[in-house]
Write a protein that binds this DNA or RNA. Structure first.
Length: 270
DNA sequence: AGTTTGACCCGGACGC
DNA sequence: TGCGTCCGGGTCAAAC
């Protein structure tokens, strides 16, 4: 499922493929994907060009001439760029007809993804109450300390809270906590300064590595399949059976109603 | 009043 | 073949 690295990869790939393309027609097959009024959505996007490509957390932001198209892939949203002659597939929900004869197709098996329009801004830092980007200077030890103060809920759950830091999903939350050797159930306010330093560093390292891997993998897919949003993961705990460090059996449990993997030997509470 | 939990949206996968 | 159940990101309502 797309988390920050995958969203970034999709964005980068779309930028190379449809930058400055014009939308000539829009077909909405499954209406709830588009959050706003259908007529307004079409009217405002018609004859607009894809000018710049930005990301905020897991949201794709397509800046057009006069408006910003926001897209969230949720669980399984995918974009394909295909010739109009290619038959529609079962889970294609929104079709953008481009001026180069290609179509940008939004495909989503679960139908959880959403699109909406917002005003263009120079700065999307206030967008949807999202927390800082993991790579921004705002994601600092002092910020984490302040945010986590008196937070009793498990640190894993806080990592998934998009208003704490934007873009981390279930898989990377497990991977980050494994990297810093902290038990996912640890109360959020129990992490010490060193833990927070490690948390910030590991988050950036892991996400960066995944973006790199995503970029590598997706290039081999794009020529035939369009933007599938698939990318390789080098997972250490999530879905693993044994710990790559100590060999202990990985525990699978539920934290904050999310499936959670951790090593009972390497990862300690505080 | 602020924080936290839970239902919801979906359909594929899986177990019986 | 056919049910029933589980899973999950973000939103929003309800409960604490």
């Amino acid at each position: 499922m797309p988390e920050l690295p995958e969203v970034q990869t999709v964005l980068d790939t779309l930028e190379t493929k449809i930058k400055d393309c014009k939308i000539e027609k829009i077909k909405i097959i499954y209406k709830p994907i588009v959050s706003c009024n259908e007529t307004t959505f079409k009217r405002k996007l018609l004859n607009q060009h894809f000018r710049s490509f930005k990301r905020r957390g897991k949201y794709l932001l397509f800046e057009m001439d006069d408006i910003t198209l926001v897209s969230h892939l949720r669980m399984e949203g995918k974009y394909f760029i295909l010739d109009e002659s290619v038959p529609l597939s079962k889970h294609d929900h929104v079709i953008f007809y481009l001026d180069n004869g290609k179509q940008l197709r939004y495909n989503d098996v679960r139908k959880f993804g959403r699109m909406e329009l917002i005003e263009k801004k120079d700065d999307y830092s206030d967008f949807k109450d999202l927390g800082p980007e993991p790579f921004s200077d705002k994601f600092s030890v002092s910020y984490c300390k302040e945010y986590l103060k008196d937070k009793k809920g498990p640190i894993k759950q806080t990592l998934l809270d998009q208003s704490f830091v934007a873009g981390i999903g279930n898989i990377y939350a497990d991977e980050i906590l494994f990297a810093i050797k902290v038990d996912p159930r640890t109360p959020s306010d129990k992490l010490n300064d060193q833990d927070l330093k490690n948390l910030i560093r590991s988050t950036r390292t892991i996400l960066k590595k995944a973006i790199k891997a995503g970029g590598t993998t997706i290039r081999s897919y794009t020529s035939s399949l369009g933007v599938t949003g698939r990318f390789q993961l080098s997972l250490k705990v999530h879905t693993m059976k044994n710990c790559p460090e100590c060999g202990a059996e990985i525990i699978k449990t539920v934290v904050g109603s999310r499936g959670t993997y951790y090593c009972p030997v390497c990862q300690k509470g505080r």
